[in-house]
C-alpha cells in the first residue's frame, strides 16, 4: 500500500490543504497504476506562484520523490488557491515518469536536475500523451505543444517527434536520446541549461 507524505504539512502562504493534496496523489497513483509498494513523497515550494511552474520527478532511495512549485498546482483565476484539475495532471505526469524510471525503460535516465530542457520536454510530451488516454485527466494539449516547441524547435522534425511521443505507450530513454539527436540535427541552436528555481531544502526560505 503506497504511503504518501508531503512537505510542508501545513501551508502558510497559500490556501492549499496538504491532506487534500495527499488524497489526490493517492487517487492519481491508482489511476496511473503506480506500483503500490512504492511510497510517494511530495514537496511543494509554496513561495513560487504561477506562472513560475516547474516540477521534478525522481526515484530516490526506493520512493517517488516529487517536487513542485506552488504555481504548478495554483488556480490561475483565484491566486493562492489550489486547482485540483491541474494538480491531478501534474501529479499524474510526475508519477508516470517515476514509473518509467522504475521499470518503464527509463532506468538509465539521470535525475531531473541533470537532464536537459529538451530531454525533459520530450519526456513530458510522452507522459502527457499517455495521461490523455487515462480517464480523469484533463490535459491542455496546446499548452504542452507550445512548451515542447520552445525547447525542441519550431520545425517539422520536432512536430513529427511530438506526435510520435504523444501517441506512444512504449518509449524508452534510449528512444528519447535518439529523437533528441534528430532534433539537434534539424535545429542545432544551442539551448543553454536554465537555472533551477528549486532550493535544496525549503528550510532555506521558510
Amino acid at each position: 500500500m503506497t504511503i504518501v507524505s508531503i512537505v510542508p504539512e501545513q501551508f502558510t502562504l497559500v490556501e492549499f490543504d496538504a491532506e487534500r493534496v495527499k488524497a489526490i496523489a493517492a487517487e492519481v497513483a491508482k489511476s496511473v497504476a503506480f506500483p503500490s509498494d512504492v511510497d510517494i513523497h511530495i514537496e511543494v515550494d509554496e513561495v513560487l506562484p504561477a506562472p513560475l511552474n516547474s516540477s521534478q520527478a525522481d526515484y530516490l532511495e526506493g520512493r517517488a520523490d516529487l517536487w513542485f512549485t506552488g504555481g504548478a498546482f495554483e488556480d490561475t483565476h483565484k491566486g493562492r488557491n489550489i486547482d485540483e484539475v491541474l494538480t491531478r495532471c501534474g501529479l499524474g505526469a510526475s508519477l508516470l515518469r517515476v514509473k518509467d524510471r522504475i521499470s518503464g525503460g527509463f532506468e538509465d535516465a539521470p535525475n531531473d536536475s541533470e537532464i536537459s530542457e529538451r530531454q525533459r520536454a520530450l519526456w513530458d510530451a510522452y507522459a502527457d500523451g499517455r495521461l490523455t488516454r487515462i480517464e480523469g485527466f484533463v490535459i491542455r494539449e496546446p499548452r504542452r505543444r507550445y512548451v515542447y516547441r520552445l525547447e525542441c524547435g519550431f520545425n517539422d522534425v520536432a512536430d513529427a517527434a511530438y506526435d510520435q511521443l504523444w501517441a506512444s505507450d512504449a518509449t524508452t530513454w534510449a528512444d528519447l536520446l535518439e529523437i533528441e539527436a534528430r532534433l539537434i540535427e534539424a535545429d542545432p541552436t544551442e539551448r543553454g541549461a536554465k537555472p533551477s528555481v528549486r532550493r535544496i531544502s525549503l528550510r532555506q526560505t521558510q
Partner: peptide
C-alpha cells in the same frame, strides 16, 4: 530567491508559462 535576470527570455525558468 533572485536567481539571475528577471527579463522574460527563453533561457529563463518557466519561460513558456
Amino acid at each position: 530567491r533572485t536567481i539571475g535576470p528577471a527579463k522574460l527570455a527563453p533561457g529563463r525558468p518557466a519561460s513558456a508559462d
